[in-house]
Design a protein around this nucleic acid. Sequence first.
DNA 1: TCTTGTCTTCATAATTTCGTAAGAATTATG
DNA 2: CATAATTCTTACGAAATTATGAAGACAAGA
Lengths: 234, 234
Amino acid sequence: MTKYQVLVVDDDIDIQEAIEIYLRGEGMEVSKANNGLEALLLLEVKEFHLIILDIMMPKMDGIQATFKIRESCNVPILMLSAKTEDMDKIMGLNVGADDYLTKPFNPLELIARVKSQLRRYTTLGPMNSMEKTANEELSVRGLVLNPVTKEVTVDGEEVRMTPTEFKILELLMVNKGRVFSIDDIYEKVWKDPAFNAENTVAVHVRRIREKIEINPKDPKYLKVVWGVGYKMEK
Amino acid sequence: MTKYQVLVVDDDIDIQEAIEIYLRGEGMEVSKANNGLEALLLLEVKEFHLIILDIMMPKMDGIQATFKIRESCNVPILMLSAKTEDMDKIMGLNVGADDYLTKPFNPLELIARVKSQLRRYTTLGPMNSMEKTANEELSVRGLVLNPVTKEVTVDGEEVRMTPTEFKILELLMVNKGRVFSIDDIYEKVWKDPAFNAENTVAVHVRRIREKIEINPKDPKYLKVVWGVGYKMEK
DNA sequence: TCTTGTCTTCATAATTTCGTAAGAATTATG
DNA sequence: CATAATTCTTACGAAATTATGAAGACAAGA
């Protein structure tokens, strides 16, 4: 068995090296590029199992690079950026990235995500890693959520969700049954430490209920677990 | 179910104490060190769930300390510094800190970030794709408790538990057969030294019985061992 | 610029849970 | 059998948690 080949694309040498160290520590081979152009050149001469791509780069930024890369192949791409908002855009749009991480990131989380992508890519085969796993339609009884088209339907009828509402609902539906505390939800959705999140999340939950529940006062889908958090009833 | 152990490393006693007060207020145990060297010594004799590390310190500064610490373990490290610029560098780089905060900081934000790091380490789930801990369903005859969904069923029928009731029941079911004294229970569930716990725990036990026992006067699950405590009958 | 839709914050209401007290009931002890 | 020790029961007010209504802040698009 040969080692996994990972390409790290970032203009900041320090970050390049940091990532290299983490990944080598996990037994992976690491190549480096300083911008999108360099990355494309490297891609022509070598095959990679995963690409880690910074968004902000000179010459060719991460988004342009992703489009170019996707023209020829679909290795998993993990995006890096300093701003959460960037990421939301990127993921919402069909840029073609498979996962993302905001700086500053936790090394362990980086490793976890890298491994996760590698696992998907190799178990499902290079062909269609995207569609099969994370992007399946999620459903709970009459409630259906499509992560790709960002559509939500209740008993066949479409309901419009705002981005935040969608993300909360997605989180709960991906892990249906599992209870998330308000702080959990805030951190996973906002990608920021929870800071006076109680009310904010509560308000969003209420709006979601208004849209998906027949009777918001007696929710059948999005339930509260007193003193613990919220969950999607199985 | 012990308290979180946090190590605060700062040469400024005032800051040490301020942080200590905030964290104790959140029910955490706090140890203190004046510099990196002291911190390392403490780390050899005690396990911590989180380390708060000032950058500027005599003897051994925060960055050196982080490197040393990372050689042996990977507890979450939260860095403190006066200058924003320092921080940006430190985070992106391979220093190994997980989060940072610039002085002067907002106490609430400190708490939020601390909690966030603690949660990151202890929670699981596909979203941050760390690994799973032992979160299996627990069952004793007709009684089933699910730590993830926080659900309890008796002969298939769901019963609603309050947070404290759930924790007590969970404690007893994880260690079924074992007898816990009232003080044991109080300390494990409340994470506080038992003071006048007798009645409090007794009341909760009764409420649990009301919910899970056919006949609370003659309990089949949650039994009392006279003069000793309570246990979950196998 | 104005409009529109979304997100956040605040104040306040509605619920649920918790701890305590006080007395009853049960079990142990001599 | 009497007494002490322990556990059980009940109920209520305080505290914590969640729900709601409404207004202001904000950003993107027309």
